[in-house]
Amino acid sequence: MRKIQMLLLVTALLMLLAVASAPALAQNAGVVNVYSARHYGAMEATFAKFTEETGIEVRLSQGTVQALLQRLEAEGTQTPADVFFSIDAGGLDLAAEKGLLQSVESAVLTEAIPEDLRDPDGYWFALSQRFRTLMVSTERVEVGAVTNYAGLADPQWKGRLCLRPATHIYTISLTASLIAEYGETDAEAIVAGWVANEPEYIDSDSRILETIAAGGCDVALTNSYYLGRILSEQPDFPVALVWANQGEAESGVHRNISGMGVTAAALNRDNAIQLIEWMATTGQAADETGIPGGNFEFPVNPTAEVNPVIAAWGEFTIDPLPLTEYGDQQEAAVALLERVGYGF
């Protein structure tokens, strides 16, 4: 009895180990493994085109920025990931700081990507730009009623404001940029003003825009591309984008990027670099085969075309704050949000 039970147990354990060790086979000539925080849906066509052109297969593992970072850290040198694809500059910066990324020298990349959109030491490279800015109802908000982030603290927006919960990286990054710009005290006053307006917290930018259209709120903060996506299908959508902080003395709209870095332990380093180079050039297309185009974002490569839907929003000033600043202020931002009682 016992012997046979033992035998079964051992067999079961062996099976378990066999299954468990399967994904460890990470090194492969024609493959690049990507830990991607970018969301599902928008980039399959881009990767498919890359594979078609280079013969390199892209293997994606998806998760939030925080989870992927933690993962990379935990796996250390064992990580199967060759590329870390973040939707947030802070995340890339933090990864570089923790030694999870390696420096890459590539003429292609230095030429394709402006200096302020890549790490000075080549640890990471932005591939698309997005802007977290004001969204207003075209039906119920007059032009010029709100022009900057601080303006959302005005009591006229009480009960009329929609925001993304504090848990989301977009909220944290924006708050971090406010701290960097105004200092912690003033930033706290601004965010507390938002909270005082009793905003509706909705954990989805696109749902926020739909809620404005339906009349559930009048002003909100979302990323630019969510509106681009909707406008491409419904040109009459009753929500308008307002570029924030465009005044004379103001710094410009909050920018964030999505970008890639080669992991420190990359087994397929050459493929990883090839992927990033491709993304910074061919992959900058304004249609669905491009990283910015497929998602209605702005390209990083100055030579790339901008998708006409979003080009219609006109010229605007971008906050010149170095992207690396965000990472430094993230912890302060989380603490600030908790202090003022910003919703989940």
Partner: peptide, 21 residues
């Protein structure tokens, strides 16, 4: 990582309000 289930996939999309997907 790389072991996302249908549930996780669906949840992730739904949390971004990609209800159709």
């Amino acid at each position: 990582f790389g072991m996302d289930t249908l549930g996780i996939w669906s949840y992730m999309l739904a949390s971004e309000a990609f209800y159709q997907a």
